[in-house]
């Protein structure tokens, strides 16, 4: 039951974006379209799971004074690997994500989970915690990517949905505001509003 909670809680009650307010930067910058959002989610899941496991294995040998540097070295090694894989297999998306793949290093979710969880827990629990938080992060990214691409450009994964439905002929216009970065912030704000009104105990 406890292990199941590690996966389940980050989805809603302890969502990294909505409740812990971590990893906002990348969440806003890469969600103008669905495809980069999904690629970014997968990269973050890989990095957070592996770094959680590695740090958890090393946790008894890391001196507390230099722990941040040790964590950063582990995380940045993983990120370099992810970056190279993306460049090799999905070059166009990797160009679109530009510096944001590198910024997974400084993604607060990764550091936050390492500090709060992996430094004090066993590897298997850390694995589940990383997976749960990675998935909780991905859910928000994919929702944002879906809404922004659908209403902003009228496409989904590059497929012109609105055009096929023939809505442009009856006077439908794309909402250009949705593609602009500030709209991502406002959408996250609205999701937080909805989420907290469902979970009254989270209100400030």
């Amino acid at each position: 039951m406890k292990n199941f909670d590690l996966i389940k809680l980050p989805f809603s009650k302890n969502n990294p974006i909505l409740v812990q307010v971590l990893g906002i930067c990348s969440c806003l910058a890469v969600t103008a379209q669905l495809k980069p959002a999904v690629v970014m989610s997968l990269s973050v899941i890989v990095v957070v799971v592996l770094s959680n496991v590695i740090i958890s294995l090393l946790r008894n040998t890391i001196p507390p004074r230099i722990r941040i540097i040790v964590q950063l070295v582990v995380v940045s090694t993983l990120v370099v690997l992810v970056d190279q894989v993306l460049k090799a297999y999905v070059y166009d998306v990797s160009k679109q994500l530009s510096v944001f793949v590198g910024l997974i290093i400084t993604n607060c979710i990764v550091m936050g989970r390492l500090e709060a969880f992996a430094m004090v827990q066993k590897p298997w629990a850390s694995f589940l915690d990383g997976l749960g938080n990675g998935l909780g992060y991905s859910v928000i990214l994919i929702v944002l990517g879906f809404v922004r691409e659908f209403f902003g450009s009228g496409t989904l994964w590059g497929y012109p949905v609105m055009e096929k439905l023939g809505l442009y002929e009856v006077g439908y216009e794309n909402n250009g505001l949705m593609i602009m970065p500030p709209m991502a912030l406002i959408l996250v704000g609205l999701i937080i509003w909805w989420h907290r009104s469902k979970n009254k105990d989270l209100c400030e």
Binding site: A184, L185, G189, W194, C203, E204
Partner: peptide, 23 residues
């Protein structure tokens, strides 16, 4: 402010509006 929007929620929305202004 509505209780559910207090704190982080409203800060997000205001930052979004400031971002629009900065555009």
């Amino acid at each position: 402010i509505p209780p559910a929007l207090r704190g982080v929620g409203i800060t997000f929305i205001i930052t979004g509006l400031m971002g629009l202004a900065f555009m």
